[in-house]
Design a protein around this nucleic acid. Sequence first.
DNA 1: CCTACCGATCGGTAGG
DNA 2: CCTACCGATCGGTAGG
Lengths: 202, 202
Amino acid sequence: MSPRHSTVEAARTRERIVRAAVEDASRLGLEGLTVGSLARRLGMSKAGLVGPFGSREQLLAAALEQAGQVFRAAVTEPLEGLPPGPGRLEQLIDRWVDYLADCPFPGGCFVTAASSELDGRPGPLRDRLREIVTSWRRRLATEIAAAQAESPGRHRPPDEVATTLIGLSMALNQEIQLLEDPSAVPRAREAMRHAVGLAVGP
Amino acid sequence: MSPRHSTVEAARTRERIVRAAVEDASRLGLEGLTVGSLARRLGMSKAGLVGPFGSREQLLAAALEQAGQVFRAAVTEPLEGLPPGPGRLEQLIDRWVDYLADCPFPGGCFVTAASSELDGRPGPLRDRLREIVTSWRRRLATEIAAAQAESPGRHRPPDEVATTLIGLSMALNQEIQLLEDPSAVPRAREAMRHAVGLAVGP
DNA sequence: CCTACCGATCGGTAGG
DNA sequence: CCTACCGATCGGTAGG
């Protein structure tokens, strides 16, 4: 009744392929990933590479899911256990900036790049990405509202602040990846803290 | 001594090709543009399409320049004649948001998409794009500093505000192109006005 | 997981 | 500006 060796091996192989696919897609874009060069890099045949997924597009879908997991592991999971409020929002911002500053993907934020690439290409990949982005926006707005609820006075609408934070993450990603400007990291961190109403440095 | 007819025709053809290239690249990305399908769409041969530019990459470079021109015509040129200060910054924000809301490119902001696509691909296209983005950042920071100079009190650093505005433009572009959320336009406009310290609506 | 192959398309060039 | 072609590569499949 124990799993056949080949089953374990198959899962390992699948995992190995997905990780390599995420790397390639991060550097070259989802459309830039080709099964031929990815297979060559892994020392496999094209058929062996695509087989576990059925098609190139389903391999890209698996890579997108994996990238979402990596983002959540870096930014969202460290918050578990903290009570909602300004302290947790501050942690979220720090984890988010750290994720962009020391990015687990060689080409910068995978979801941002995929969004720009897929927004004009209808299909299941675009649909799934829209779900991922929408869900993250909702999560952000909830965290912001919880933080605002603990301090008196008028606040900007949580949706607007969420847009500002997402925008700052995109601008930071550009300043790191395209402009290679090391001053961008502290600047974006301060801007995020200011946008949500946290005290900011001198 | 008058220019030969063929010279005028050649310039017209070149212009026509560049415009079509910008459209294709906006929808499919710069890497997604192929000379074969672009030639077919224009009823030309591949050789005739690429000839005036020398190579596909130089055609892409021409498309990038053209996209920069379109952006400046929409956002920067309308400001000419206005004195620096809050009024001109307000106009800049409105033209910028309008440009994104009713975009001259079918796939959304060309420069933002190109930035995300090229940031991991070293070469002359990336170098040129970096110049374009850097120059725009500088211009923005100058406009922000001029507006701040006219009002008393402490202000956020102009570089930080420039990052916030650029980020908001990217987030708005995503909300329009990927999420197709019509509420994004007024929200981003308010966020930009707030970020630069202009009075915002109710 | 492999080899061997499919038709289609890629960017580019020779020659006019 | 064209036709006609180059070698390379694309994603996918048949058959094992």
